[in-house]
């Protein structure tokens, strides 16, 4: 009898050990599946990033390998702060991003509010509205450069034909012209997201508002916009992040000129690396931009997380009551 009990218990320990092994293997499985992705990320993302950070601490000419470049510590970062050209460029970037995002939000949301209805041909119209977004940025730049041309450009020829004074688009008003082109290209992005947000609003709440006596404006102001707000905030932040990185269109249209009037940061970085042959400074500048965008992104994540937390709290309260 005792023998029998002993055998059972020893065999059960063996089984236990086997189960533990299986369990720990099971626990590793997700990491094994993630490993290839982590490996590729490390090579494609972390390595270049680390390289850039490392390079930003050196006085580095493109003819040198990174090992030959002299280590200068934070010198690049400090000189940049004192560099009026960098400050000007940062200021231009901030101005560009602010105007572009503001106008795109207003026009995009406005269009979405106008076109959120069922009229014949509306789907074709909607498709047309989002076309600019699908054109390659270089092409957009070339197209607008042509249209802005002082003598043969579409705008000035039209103005001339109407007997109006012509405008020096890419000269005196270069920043404004560049901003207009960007608005043309990226308003559709806000438009489609705002339209999607509008169409997912609860229909009956809007009907209730109509019965409660809200005019079309009051429906927009008191019901539609507040309910769309979470989507609009994320959309605006996405656009803002993108606006800080814009390069091709401006490069093609103005190359940053005249003077520094349209030299946004991305352009300045590229010129610092290629024309001025200062890789370390360019890297430091990139890191400043990266930090700025990182802050914005974190802000966006913080916002969505805050929203989810609030929704969860509200749900909890509701469940406790019922």
């Amino acid at each position: 009898m005792a023998d029998a009990a002993l055998t059972t218990s020893s065999s059960s320990t063996a089984r236990q050990a086997q189960r533990n092994r299986a369990l720990s293997l099971n626990r590793l499985t997700p990491y094994m599946f993630m490993a290839p992705a982590v490996f590729i990320m490390a090579i494609a993302l972390l390595y270049p990033l680390g390289y850039m950070v490392w390079g930003s601490f050196r006085d580095w000419d493109p003819s040198q390998t990174i090992g030959e470049a002299e280590f200068v510590g934070l010198k690049n970062y400090i000189t940049l702060w004192g560099d009026p050209n960098f400050r000007e460029s940062l200021w231009v970037t901030l101005k560009f991003a602010f105007f572009v995002v503001t106008f795109e939000m207003v026009i995009g949301v406005g269009l979405a509010l106008l076109l959120d209805r069922n009229i014949r041909g509306m789907s074709a119209l909607r498709t047309m509205f989002i076309l600019p977004m699908m054109i390659a940025p270089v092409v957009v730049g070339l197209m607008w450069r042509y249209m802005y041309h002082p003598t043969v450009g579409t705008f000035n020829r039209t103005l001339d034909g109407l007997g109006l004074p012509t405008v020096d688009w890419l000269g005196q008003h270069a920043l404004m012209s560049v901003i207009i082109a960007d608005i043309w290209q990226w308003t559709p992005f806000i438009f489609i997201l705002a339209l999607a947000a509008l169409q997912s609003l609860p229909r009956s709440a809007l009907e209730a508002a109509r019965i409660d006596g809200a005019t079309a404006w009051q429906q927009i102001w008191y019901i539609k916009l507040p309910l769309m707000l979470p989507v609009l905030i994320v959309t605006g932040l996405l656009r803002l992040i993108d606006a800080f990185k814009v390069l091709e269109v401006i490069l093609v249209m103005t190359e940053g000129g005249p003077g520094l009037s349209t030299e946004i940061l991305a352009l300045r970085i590229s010129r610092t690396a290629t024309e001025f042959r200062e890789l370390g400074v360019a890297a430091a500048m990139s890191n400043y931009l990266l930090l700025l965008l990182l802050a914005l992104t974190m802000g966006m994540f913080a916002f969505t997380r805050w929203q989810e937390a609030r929704a969860a709290r509200v749900r909890m309260a509701a469940e406790e009551d019922s």
């Binding site: 009956s204 009907e207 209730a208 508002a209 019965i211 008191y222 309910l227």
Partner: peptide, 10 residues
């Protein structure tokens, strides 16, 4: 009017 899904302003 009272709606089936209440139609409250969330």
């Amino acid at each position: 009017m009272v709606f089936q899904d209440y139609a409250l302003y969330p």
